[in-house]
Structure formats: C-alpha cells, structure tokens
C-alpha cells in the first residue's frame, strides 16, 4: 500500500492518497454491474373488448383461429388436436396467406399458467402480430 507521508521535516503533503477512493469506486462499479442487467422480458398480448353492437360478421368468425389448451393440456387449433412441437409450423402455414395475423388463445381454467405460455411463445415465433386472450364469457359463443 503506497502511502505518501509528510516528509520528516513536517512539510505539507504534495499528493492526496487516492487508493481508498479507487477501491470504493471499483466496488460501486461491480455492484451496479450486478444489479442493472435485470431488465424484464415478456410476451405481448391483447384482451379483446366485447363487441358492443352484436352484429357478427360471419366471414370473420369462420376465419378466426383459436388455439385452445384443454384440461389434459392437449393443444388444438379450432378443435383439431395438434402436437405442441408441430404447432409453430401449422401456424406459419395458416398465416402464410393471410394479412390479418390475428389469433386467439384460450385455456382450461384448471391448468397452470405455465401451460399457456408456450402457446403465446409459439405464436410470437410464428410472427402472429395480435394474440388475443379469450375470457370465459367470450369462449361460450
């Protein structure tokens, strides 16, 4: 440890000892390096508002893609069962020819939230722009 000590004749110190200052600053840098990179990540989704004028466009309804997860965690696109590892390819196929990249996700109330997240993950991987989360009363239609 380099310490500058006043000369034996008691003259004034010419340099400030900056070593402890550097120690402290290094510790500060390390601490902020650990804390800062924790930025949150997430999957964007939409919650559709109920249609106020009850006129449903039949053509739109027929084109709607609903991916659902049942209580046995089986995934299906519009009632057709699809294995989870083929879901992305199927969605890419479906939306290849479409301009409106909109789909809906619904899940059985008894499954854990983690069973629905892969569907949203796959939907984002298949470049579906708008993922709507279906609630119970809409599902009954």
């Amino acid at each position: 440890m380099a310490m500058t000590v006043g000369g034996s004749k008691g003259g004034p110190m010419s340099e400030i000892n900056i070593t402890p200052l550097i120690d402290v600053l290094l510790v500060l840098i390390i601490i902020f390096m650990v804390i800062v990179p924790h930025t949150p990540h997430g999957l964007g989704a939409l919650i559709p508002q109920p249609n106020k004028n009850q006129k449903q466009n039949q053509a739109v309804v027929e084109r709607t893609i609903v991916v659902s997860v049942n209580a046995q965690r089986q995934v299906s696109i519009n009632q057709t069962p699809v294995p989870l590892n083929q879901l992305q390819d199927r969605l890419v196929d479906i939306f290849k020819t479409r301009n409106d990249k909109v789909m809906f996700v619904s899940g059985d109330p008894s499954i854990p939230f983690a069973a629905v997240v892969p569907i949203l993950d796959i939907a984002h991987g298949a470049n579906v722009d708008k993922v709507g989360l279906l609630l119970k009363q809409l599902q009954a239609q």
Binding site: G42, G44, A45, P48, Q49, N85, Q88, P118, D121
Partner: peptide
C-alpha cells in the same frame, strides 16, 4: 386492451419449439 405477460428469457430452444424457430 394491451397486456404484457412477463416471463423469463430462455437462452436455449425449449423442446416444444421446432429447430426452425
């Protein structure tokens, strides 16, 4: 209308995603 479902970022391909993903 807009919700963000916060998740943790996976670094590796999960088993349910095909290789092309």
């Amino acid at each position: 209308q807009d919700v963000g479902l916060l998740t943790e970022q996976l670094q590796q391909r999960p088993p349910y995603l095909p290789q092309s993903a």
